[in-house]
Computed example of a mutant assay.
Amino acid sequence: MIRHAEAMELTAFENARLLDLLRALTDEQWRAATECTRWTVRDIAVHLIASAQAQAHPTEFVRQVLAGRRLSARIGATHWVDGLNEAQLRARTAWTGSQLPALWQQHAATALAARRRMPAAIRALPVLPLGTGLGVHVGRQPLSYLFDMGFTRDVWMHRIDIARAAGTTPELTAGHDGRIIADIVEEWSERHGQPYLVTLTGPAGGVFQKDDGDHQTVDAVDFVRILSGRADGPGILRHKLPL
């Protein structure tokens, strides 16, 4: 599993990767629909920037959570995070695509600085009611679950969403993307507890095994899309992992 110091380095690199992608988008690409229900490319970018604002400032984090809870029932949300995400978008309707790269650069840097300096004792507090999603019970988690890699996984997955919607090829490397995916595999494996042999193909891939179980071969990025509920998969890939 990825620990705090490594997580912060991966986060800095991932933030830069997303910035490069956002800077290259056209007006048409900002309006493109994504695999995230009801969200355009612009909406995903707004969500990520709002999330960075919340990471940097505890009062903003609480404000977004409370606003989301008020919205959850009205939008038929199945999880409190759905209401929070909706609140983020509704509070930022004036933001245009052309503004978003600079906003991401600014707030991602502030969020990373806050995450780097968060004391270990605070990161260890088991105060996150992540509950159940995609049929997986995650349960109460320490703050580090989100503030180390959780938010970074979100950025990574949404960078893939944006690239797919925009019709571009996401930049992928073994040292960066492969490390993030290996960390996801580790948690996924622990949560479902079943034997498997999974071969992930592509530049971010690898071979992962727990005893001699179900054998599956799939593209590494598609593997994470399947785990996150964006696509379906056979056999051992039926086990999901909320990202």
Rank of each mutant, 00 (worst) to 15 (best):
Q53F: 00
A54E: 14
Q55V: 12
A56R: 04
A56N: 06
A56I: 04
P58N: 08
F61A: 12
Q64E: 14
L66Y: 08
A67W: 11
R69I: 03
R69A: 05
R70I: 09
R70Y: 11
L71N: 09
L71D: 08
R74L: 15
G76H: 10
A77V: 01
A77P: 04
A77Y: 04
A77W: 02
T78F: 06
H79T: 02
W80P: 04
W80I: 04
V81R: 12
G83S: 12
E86S: 13
E86N: 14
A87I: 06
Q88M: 13
L89R: 03
R90S: 01
A91T: 03
R92T: 09
R92Y: 12
A94Q: 15
G97E: 04
G97D: 04
Q99M: 07
Q99V: 08
Q99K: 08
L100G: 03
L100Y: 01
L100E: 00
P101Q: 05
L103C: 05
W104T: 00
Q106A: 08
Q106Y: 13
H107Y: 00
H107A: 00
A108I: 01
A109Q: 02
T110W: 08
L112M: 05
R115L: 01
A121I: 15
I122C: 12
R123I: 10
P126N: 13
V127P: 02
L128M: 15
L128Y: 05
P129K: 05
L130F: 14
G131E: 05
G131P: 01
G133D: 00
L134S: 01
V136P: 03
V136A: 05
H137W: 12
V138K: 01
R140L: 11
Q141W: 07
P142T: 11
P142I: 12
P142A: 14
P142H: 10
L146M: 14
F147H: 11
D148F: 03
D148Q: 00
M149V: 07
M149G: 00
F151Q: 06
T152C: 09
T152V: 13
R153I: 01
D154A: 13
V155R: 02
V155Q: 06
V155E: 06
M157Q: 01
H158D: 06
H158R: 10
I160F: 12
R164V: 08
R164I: 10
G167W: 14
T168R: 13
P170K: 13
E171L: 08
E171A: 06
L172H: 05
A174P: 02
A174G: 12
A174K: 03
D177T: 13
R179M: 05
R179W: 01
R179P: 00
R179L: 03
I181W: 00
I181P: 00
I181T: 01
A182Q: 02
E186L: 02
E186D: 12
E186M: 05
E187T: 04
